[in-house]
Amino acid sequence: MLELDAIRIRQDQFTLTAGFTVAPGQRVAVIGPSGAGKSTLLSLIAGFLAPDGGRIRWNGTDITDLAPGKRPLSIVFQDQNLFPHLSVAANVGLGLRPDLRLSRAEQASVQSALERVGLSGLEMRRPAALSGGQQSRVALARVLLRARPLILLDEPFAALGPALKAEMLDLVAGIAGENRAAVLMVSHDPADARRFAPDTVLVAEGTAHAPQPTAALLDAPPPALAAYLGQ
């Protein structure tokens, strides 16, 4: 279980507070106006930013001071998820061993992860030789392989078309299900939230609110969200 305990961060004129928990296997959308702090929230959980106050715990263990790579999570960014000079297989293999000294068994699991996301035969390609959708699949294959109990998605599919995006969300749902992982997904699109996440964290006016049922929130949005949604 992820626990944000009285988290507080200030950056220039901007402040964000958060205090809530996310249960194992829970799928949560993170929505809110631009600049409200959705990405900041994910950066705090991932460890790229340190909070000014409060603690972050995982299953009761304090992870606030843990380096990003040591945290029990995988994160997929909006872009730059792959190293352009490394092959598809190496990009996925990094998720298992950063020094890329993969054993036979590890190579086989890289292979099967790529199969699982539908990229067999493209192992030796460079990312530049892949389509946008395929690049997302490589990143997801790595998430699958790392099998961490928490997955953070910082709008990784924003550049994909609607059909492809839906496909990716289904893939994420499948991967999260296999690993019984919780997912926090930043999105600009209420339809994504409805489709993917039973619960939603609303980030607005300096606060990341506790997860609440997505459908109810979107059907009767509070004023800040309503303005953002254009309702």
């Binding site: 990003p68 040591k70 960014f77 730059q80 190293f83 000079h85 190496a90 990094l94 950063p98 020094d99």
Partner: peptide
Amino acid sequence: RLAASLDLRGTARLRHLTLPR
């Protein structure tokens, strides 16, 4: 950030990220 999230550090980072890039 990507390197940090994958725990890519030290010689592995030098070899697989810094020197090639």
